[in-house]
Each structure stands twice: as structure tokens, then as C-alpha cells.
Amino acid sequence: MKKYSLKKILNDVKKGVRKNFQASLTIIGFFIFWQIIVVFFQIPQFILPSPLDALEHLFIPQESANYSWMLHISTTLYEIALSFIVTATVGILLAIVISWSRLIKDIMMPFFIFINSLPTIAIAPIILLWMGYGIKTNILIAFLVSFFPVVINTIAGLNSVEDDLLDLVRYLHGSKLQIFIKIRIPNSLPYIFSGLKIGSTMCIVGAIVGEFIASDKGLGYIIINSQFTMNTPPIFSALIVISIAGALLYGLVTLLEKLIMPWREIQTTNQ
């Protein structure tokens, strides 16, 4: 038994390294390709800066640029993190409430579908009008963009329980609450996580869009501001940071998924 598990862990590590090695090769290759294209075709910096220019802008303090990267990066990361936590908590709780009774579902679902079909860009100015400039506004915008996939996926998971599995609780006269806690909610975990993965990406979109419209700091603000002054390198610097943040958040959700659902790992290794 022990020998088997040790072997398995070693195998997992090997697989992980190989997978990440391939992924990092792809990314490094992409940057090299980008650098070569820019240098080879002598593309002007204001159209497409080379990745080295973009990175240089991040790491070497620019006298001309009147801002600190740390402030903007931390602002955006803070917005993303907070809006993701709010989205996850509120989204899952809403889904449980909605699934609890048919009546609540019939009343609330049309409203959520209505909210969700409003384009964010269109409602952002109104939120700005109500709440003013600032982090809170951006978090609210990010939440509005991203909560829906979490809600929908969680509801799907809560409802995708075989009738026979419910009979298992019912013949012992278990309550609806017990069915939720012992069957429906654990059964919906894989669905919740796929909702959270979509939600995490949407949170980033929401935060950046919020900063476009209603901010005086953050990476979205840098992008918009640099565009006005035709200062392209910081735009790309910001894009690189945003994509790294996105990948990290996605990785965090995936890691959490593996920790919370160890039985899924077993399933995949058996196949």
C-alpha cells in the first residue's frame, strides 16, 4: 500500500514537472517569437513594443512616467481578489437559496437573467454615477459581470442528483436540509469549481473595465491613460501583469479544487 502511494506521488510529480515544463516552453517561445518579429521588422515602439521594452518599463523606474507600478498592480490585484471572494460567496449562497424552493427560483431567475444580459460597459457609468470613483465601484462591476456563471453552475450541480440517491436519504426519513447538506452540496462541488473558474476570469475583466471607466489608479487606468498619450510600452507591461494575475488566480482555484475534492484525483489516475 505504502509503496504504491509513494510511487504514485513520484509519478504525479514527474507528470507535473513535465506538464509545466511544456507550458513554460510555449510561453517563453511566444515571447522570443514576439521579440524577433519586433526587431526583425523594425516595428515602431508606439505600435508594438518588444516584450523586453514592456518588461523594462515594469522593472526600471521611468522618470518620465509619473506613477508607481506597485500602487497600480496592488490596487488591481486587491480588486480582483476581493471581487472574486464576494462573487464566490454570494454566487454559491444565491444558488443554494434559489435551489431550495421552486417558488424562489421562479421569482428570482428571470431577474438574474435580466441583470446578466445587460452589457457591463453599459451599466458601469450608472454605477459610477451612484457610487463615485474608487475601488468599491470596480469591485461591484466585477461582481456583476462574474456572479452569474457561478450561480448557474452551482444550481446545475445542486439539481444533478440521481433520484435514487435521494431515495437513499428519504427511506430513512431524512429531511430536505439533510439532503442538501449530505447529497446536493457535495455533489455540486465539481460544478461549483467550473463556475468559479469562469467567474475568476470574469472578475478580472470586470475589474479592468471598471478601472477604464471609474478609476484614477489600477492597471486598467494605466492602459487607458497610456493610450491617450500614445505611450504603448506600459500598456503591454500592464497586459503582461494582468495575464499573470489571471493565470495565478486560475491556478489557485484549480489547486483548491484538488485539495477539496481528493476523490476526483483518484478517479483520474484510475482512468
Binding site: D164, L172, K182, L189, M261
Partner: peptide, 21 residues
């Protein structure tokens, strides 16, 4: 007809389900 085990629970916890209910 089907074993209807809760795949997120270990065997012992599956056996103890009726006790919880």
C-alpha cells in the same frame, strides 16, 4: 440496484450515512 455510494466519502463514512441521517 446500484450501489449508490457517495463518491466524495470514504468507505467508512459511506457506511455511517444512515447513522447521520
Amino acid at each position: 440496484q446500484d450501489s449508490l455510494l457517495l463518491h466524495w466519502r470514504k468507505v467508512l463514512e459511506n457506511v455511517l450515512l444512515p447513522i447521520e441521517i
